[in-house]
Amino acid sequence: MEAITIGIIGGSGLYKMEALQDIKEVTLETPFGSPSDSFITGTLDNTRVVFLPRHGRNHHLLPSELPFQANIYALKQLGVKYILSASAVGSLQKEIKPLDFVIPDQFIDRTKNRQATFFGEGIVAHIAFGHPVCGKLGNVIAQAMKNLNLPDVSLHEGGTYICMEGPAFSTIAESNLYRSWGGSIIGMTNLTEAKLAREAEIAYATLALVTDYDCWNPEHDHVTVETVIQNLHQNAINAQKVIRETVKLIAENPFISDAHSALQTAILTPLEKVSPETKEKLNAILTKYL
């Protein structure tokens, strides 16, 4: 199969890409199990991309149930070098309004039950993660939004994504704690993806789609399910436009990210001391170092 360098992970409300043409479904198995769903490959304006619905196309997987390792490993197997991750979030700040878009550049991890590394079983690696997303990719997404000049959509460049375990939303006390920490938005998935993408040497950035204010805001009590679903739908329409423009910009000017060599100084275990079984399991990630 031809290598596909751009991967798209769609979150709540974004289960498919309407503009994809020449669609094929690809089912992959990985050493870490099955991904969330089949991968949808297709063409966006003459550029081949691969799309994965994070929670499955019928949204049947809880955040804690997501096969994060399998999802990222399979994208690596397909040849992906850039991941555009769209994700529904709640806002922790008054100025970040429902239907706004955020490109966060920091994360705080509040998860408890996640497998957030490919390593272990006889091999140790510690990636640098001070800057958890690819700044170059974030800049391309921001440029795409500026090119589109979408009405009624404000862009916030930078900010901190609080990644909580879920599936229940925060208590008011927790929400106010995260605000005191400087949190901008809150979600349940993207940090784990970012860690694994860095280990897989894939540039990763989040396009966060604000559906509503988190429960710290008294107005939250008046938000209806219908309103949230309407916002999810509108966000998905706008997100597809931004992703399409971002893909176009990457295709026109592919770039080298620091993430593309993240393992160069991260692996502590001498590879000649690693078992053949572990090397085989991590082949898609380690191949250029073996």
Rank of each mutant, 00 (worst) to 15 (best):
S91D: 10
G7I: 02
L66V: 12
F68G: 00
V133A: 02
K16G: 12
W216C: 05
L20T: 04
S184M: 02
E219H: 11
R179C: 06
A74E: 01
P63T: 13
G33I: 07
E277A: 15
G166W: 04
E174K: 08
T278H: 07
L290I: 14
K24F: 09
H220K: 12
N176D: 15
S34A: 14
G120H: 08
E219F: 09
I202Q: 11
M145W: 00
Y161H: 13
T246L: 12
I250N: 01
F101M: 14
N58I: 14
T41G: 08
I186P: 00
P35A: 11
T211W: 01
I23Q: 13
V50Q: 02
L249Y: 07
A19I: 13
Y178G: 01
A168L: 13
E272G: 05
T265V: 15
L191P: 00
I127R: 05
E226T: 13
V153D: 00
D214H: 04
L44W: 11
Q93T: 10
K24H: 14
F51G: 00
A173M: 05
K279E: 06
T269I: 10
T117G: 12
S175F: 01
G183H: 05
L52M: 07
M188D: 02
D45V: 09
V223G: 08
G13W: 03
R110D: 09
N113G: 03
S36D: 03
P35E: 06
G13R: 06
M188L: 06
L232K: 09
N176Y: 11
T117D: 11
G182I: 10
T30A: 12
V228F: 02
L44A: 10
F119Q: 06
I9R: 01
M164F: 04
N235Y: 06
V242Y: 02
L177V: 05
V124Y: 09
S275F: 08
R198V: 05
P63R: 06
E121F: 14
D258N: 15
A86T: 14
I243P: 00
A200G: 07
Y82C: 10
I103Y: 07
E29G: 12
D109W: 07
W181C: 08
A74Y: 07
G11K: 00
L271M: 02
H60W: 12
Q77Y: 05
K112F: 15
I40Q: 07
T5P: 03
Y289K: 06
L150G: 02
L209I: 03
N217Q: 14
Y178I: 01
K16D: 15
G90Y: 04
T246F: 11
T269C: 11
S36Y: 01
I267M: 08
N231R: 13
R57T: 10
I9T: 07
A88P: 04
F129W: 09
C215Q: 03
E65N: 14
E29L: 13
S261F: 13
V89G: 00
L271A: 03
A116P: 00
L196E: 01
